[in-house]
Write a protein that binds this DNA or RNA. Sequence first.
DNA 1: TCTATATTCTACTCAGAGGTAGAAATAAGA
DNA 2: TCTTATTTCTACCTCTGAGTAGAATATAGA
Lengths: 137, 137
Amino acid sequence: MRFQKTTEYAIRVMVFLADHMDERYSANQLHQTLQIPYKYLGRLMQKLSNAGLVEVTQGKQGGYRIIQDLSNIYLSEIVNVVEGLADYGRCVLGFPQCSDENPCSLHKIWKERQESITKMIYDTTLADLQSNGSKKY
Amino acid sequence: MRFQKTTEYAIRVMVFLADHMDERYSANQLHQTLQIPYKYLGRLMQKLSNAGLVEVTQGKQGGYRIIQDLSNIYLSEIVNVVEGLADYGRCVLGFPQCSDENPCSLHKIWKERQESITKMIYDTTLADLQSNGSKKY
DNA sequence: TCTATATTCTACTCAGAGGTAGAAATAAGA
DNA sequence: TCTTATTTCTACCTCTGAGTAGAATATAGA
Ligand code: SF4
Ligand code: SF4
């Protein structure tokens, strides 16, 4: 029960870039600062840029940057790029089809928690996550 | 962000057996009733029995059964048998070391949800999950 | 134009989850 | 005792997430 490692990487990068808007960071800089495997990060960044979440500049002095308004970038978009959103809403017992009427005994207690996390990724934007002052990275 | 498929299987089996205490079910019966791959289920049941969660009888008319008091079997034990509990408490950014002091911007909102799920699996027993009446399976 | 620093593309490797196959061991009951 | 239904053991296979390697492409700036 956790996010995929790649999703963690993606959130790490986006939160970091959000805290350093208007600056470009190369894959190598991000790799060193955020402890993410260099080559792996390259492919991840490509996905994020294809999804329009970061702007990319090639060549010397190039790198990645966020240009969108931070309050328009939701965690759900980041999660979607990496692991997709299909699992949110999944039955805790793994059954494919099951209406909410006449639910099994675990349904209610599980759905509450699941929806709380779903709500979190759909409601939280990078603007909510800016750490003004006390930056750690 | 979801349980492993095998964990779902395990919970399915245990909830089913809890609803049918004092009856033995063979792997084949469970396989057909709960739609879990037969051979795969065999290995899963072995783990559950090694952990003492089910009693097993070999040979003809054999099968699996719960003998413990249902209120003594916590979801956390079931999860532990399959995927372990190490991920509960994991940092949402995947960093290995990070104290709760001077937390990053995501820490609080994430910890709340994570602890809610952790609490669920540590506090819920099979007795809480018995569906008296309206059984679906 | 050339060079250094970037991203991008392609093709691997590795580990673990999920699943399959078949034979061996066990025990109830005819 | 023999048969049959069962678990158990061992060995594979497949798929996906994670990570590595190297060459190709792009571009700022000397
Ligand atoms: S009622 Fe139970 S089986 Fe059906 S979707 Fe909800 S948790 Fe899954
Ligand atoms: S403060 Fe942030 S980085 Fe540190 S453990 Fe909490 S979520 Fe992870």
